[in-house]
Nucleic acid binder design. Structure first.
Lengths: 159, 159
DNA sequence: GTTCATGCAAACCTTTTGCAACTAA
DNA sequence: TTAGTTGCAAAAGGTTTGCATGAAC
C-alpha cells in the first residue's frame, strides 16, 4: 500500500472515528498509519515496535496500541486472529481487501493469503442449511510445503 | 458416548501412552475418562471442574489436566481451538469422529458441528494450487440465527 | 471547561514451569 | 530402584484496566 493510498485510508478512518464520537489523536493517527503501512500480519507488540523504530520510543504507548486496535477491529478496519496456539493474536488491515483465507506453512510459518469465490459460496450454503446466516468466518489451513519436499527448498522462506 | 464406548477409547489411549513410554496414572485415567464422557466442547478448567464435581476436589490437579490435554492433543485424541477472542482454548475429543467444521451462533454462542465432503475437497484443492499439502485446518463460521430473526426464537439456545 | 484519551503500573487470565515429594514400572 | 509424574506455587505472556494527568473538542 503506497503512502498515498495510506492517506486515503487514514482519512476514511478518521471520519469514522469522528462519526462515532471518538477523538482523533496524534497517537491514533500514528497507530493507524503504521497499521496500514504494514503489508504483513502484525501483532500488537510488533506494531508498537515498528512505531518505536520509525518515530522513537514515546510516540504511542503499548496500551494505546491495544486500545486503538480494538476500536479498529470493532469498526471493521482490521481483523485479528489466532495463528498458533499459545501465541498472541495477529492483525491485518481489511480496507480495500476482499475477504481471504489463510494458509500457514508448516515448514517456515509463513502466512499465505488466498481467496476463492467457490469456497465462499460453499461455506455460505452449508451454514444456511443449518439455519444461520454467515456473518464472518475464519479459515486457517496448515500445510506442508510441496516444493520443500520435492526439491529441498521452501519457496515461502524469506530470502 | 456411552460408558462402554468410553471404555474402548480409554483402552486405546492407555495403549498409546504405554507405547510412547508414558505412564498410565490414576490422574491420567480420570482426566481422559472425563474428556470422553463429555459430549460438548470443554475448556481445561471446565474439565477440571467436572472432575471435581464427579469425584471430589483432589482427584487431579489443574496443572495435570493441562499437561494431560497436551499429550492427548499431540497424540491426536483431542483437538483444541480458540472460539472467542480473549477466552481460553476449548477442546473436543476426536476419536471416532470424522473431521468437522464449526459454526458459532452469534445469538447464543452455541457451537454447532458440521461436515461437508465437498468443502473438504475444495479446501484441499485450493491449497494444492498454492503448493502445499493440507495437513490440518480450522474453519469457524459465525452466523446469525435465521429462526431467531424470523420467528423470535433461537433454536440453538439451551432449552 | 468538559469529556475523552493517554501513560503508567498494576491486575488479570490462561497456561506453563521448577522443584521436591511421590509412584508406576 | 529409578525415571517419569504429580501437586503446588510461582512465573510467564498477552491483554486489560483504574486512575491521575493531559489533550481534543
Amino acid at each position: 500500500m503506497s503512502q498515498q493510498e495510506v492517506q486515503t485510508e487514514l482519512d476514511q478512518i478518521r471520519r469514522y472515528f469522528k462519526k462515532v464520537g471518538l477523538r482523533w489523536t496524534k497517537q491514533r493517527e500514528i497507530i493507524v498509519e503504521q497499521a496500514f503501512l504494514t503489508h504483513d500480519h502484525f501483532s500488537a507488540e510488533g506494531l508498537y515496535d515498528m512505531i518505536k523504530d520509525r518515530l522513537g520510543g514515546d510516540s504511542a504507548h503499548l496500551a494505546t496500541v491495544y486500545r486503538t486496535l480494538q476500536v479498529l477491529e470493532e469498526g471493521g478496519f482490521v481483523e485479528g486472529m489466532e495463528v498458533a496456539k499459545g501465541e498472541g493474536r495477529v492483525f491485518e488491515h481489511t480496507l480495500g481487501h476482499e475477504h481471504h483465507d489463510h494458509v500457514i506453512c508448516n515448514d517456515c510459518g509463513k502466512i499465505i493469503e488466498f481467496h476463492s469465490e467457490a469456497l465462499e459460496d460453499l461455506k455460505r450454503r452449508e451454514v444456511e442449511k443449518l439455519g444461520l446466516a454467515m456473518t464472518s468466518h475464519s479459515l486457517r489451513i496448515h500445510g506442508d510445503c510441496l516444493k520443500l519436499k520435492n526439491e529441498g527448498v521452501c519457496p515461502n522462506l524469506p530470502s
